[in-house]
């Protein structure tokens, strides 16, 4: 195994069983995360980004969700097979997570300092006093003023709360940070501040990061690698240059087409036609085919494989069959 790889997700499939039927949230997902690098999972709502993150963390809701197959390898250890106790020691210390909505992701009845101290007490600090001291340091580091650290979440603004969320996630200096749309719920000026903070801390702590987002601006800003997700699968994977200058999958191309270009006069944005497929129906063939301008008869029949069209640039589209060096 590549020494440089810290996390590898192999053939991950999971579904949710609800009263209205089975939802196939993630289908045969593969990616690797290199030490110290940032991978962006990009896609629309419902593409399975958050489910993937929760599967890695082992915090999928029970008993509705079920992992059907796959492995999540943290330095070679399969987390999906790890014991409850082992997962508790991994969560928060080796892998930690920042959640989407800072308004709801902090416990409203606990002081923010206690919430940060909690994770420290679990993994790092030997005593409560030590945990409190370390919590204070981390909170100062993310820019919370000293006289405010014993306040409650409702006394903080959204941006401040997300700083607390970041402090909680980074308190035990994890090797991997999963950020689930950390700036979506914040207003734009605060978004930039929080992103800047995350980039700075990531460098300082030498972490690998999985950034989940649907904001291509953030992707361009922070990522080293990009995985474009559609209907629970990664349809295109590559480094930033591959995706931004040489996107191949019709969905990725469509996504970029949706961004308004201010340099030219444009009457309308070009949306991708149609809707994301109903995740409770597993379509035959390519999931994107019904919306794809290039779809052929075959796309509706055959599930595309993953084709490497240039080193490190993978596309899941039948157009590129035969162009790859190796079919996986």
């Amino acid at each position: 195994m590549d020494q440089n790889v810290i996390l590898e997700v192999k053939n991950l499939s999971l579904n949710y069983v609800t009263d209205d039927g089975t939802v196939y949230a993630v289908n045969d997902l593969n990616f690797v995360l290199h030490k110290g690098s940032t991978l962006c999972l990009v896609g629309e709502t419902g593409a399975g980004k958050t489910s993937t993150a929760k599967a890695i963390m082992g915090i999928l809701p029970h008993p509705q969700s079920k992992i059907l197959s796959g492995e999540v390898l943290l330095e070679g250890e399969d987390l999906l097979k790890a014991s409850k106790k082992r997962m508790q020691s991994v969560r928060g210390s080796k892998i930690s997570m920042i959640f989407q909505d800072p308004m709801t992701s902090l416990n409203p009845v606990m002081r923010v300092s206690d919430q940060v101290a909690e994770v420290l007490r679990l993994h790092k600090a030997k005593s409560r006093i030590e945990a409190a001291k370390m919590a204070k340091e981390v909170l100062l580091q993310v820019g919370i003023k000293e006289d405010r650290i014993t306040e409650y979440p409702h006394q903080f603004s959204g941006g401040m709360r997300q700083r607390v969320g970041i402090a909680m996630a980074l308190a035990c200096s994890p090797e991997i940070l999963i950020a689930d749309e950390p700036t979506t719920a914040l207003d734009v000026t605060i978004q930039a501040q929080v992103l800047e903070l995350m980039k700075e801390l990531k460098k300082q702590y030498e972490m690998a990061m999985i950034m989940i987002t649907h904001d291509l601006g953030i992707v361009a800003d922070v990522c080293d690698y990009v995985a474009v997700m559609y209907a629970g699968s990664i349809v295109e994977y590559g480094d930033r240059r591959h995706i931004f200058t040489n996107a191949k999958h019709p969905y990725t191309i469509g996504l970029f087409g949706c961004i308004p270009d201010l340099s030219i006069e444009q009457e309308e944005l070009i949306p991708i036609k149609g809707m994301t497929p109903d995740p409770s129906k597993k379509p035959k063939g390519c999931a994107f085919a019904p919306r794809c301008a290039y779809a052929t008869e075959q796309c509706f029949q055959e599930t595309p494989g993953n084709y490497e069209i240039e080193p490190g640039h993978w596309v899941r589209c039948l157009q590129f069959r035969g162009e790859d060096t190796e079919n996986v």
């Binding site: 929760k54 963390m57 915090i59 997962m87 508790q88 020691s89 991994v90 969560r91 928060g92 210390s93 930690s96 997570m97 959640f99 992701s105 902090l106 416990n107 909690e118 994770v119 679990l122 993994h123 969320g165 909680m168 996630a169």
Partner: peptide, 8 residues
Amino acid sequence: NTARAKGQ
């Protein structure tokens, strides 16, 4: 979920 993510 935040609390679970801490490893509690």
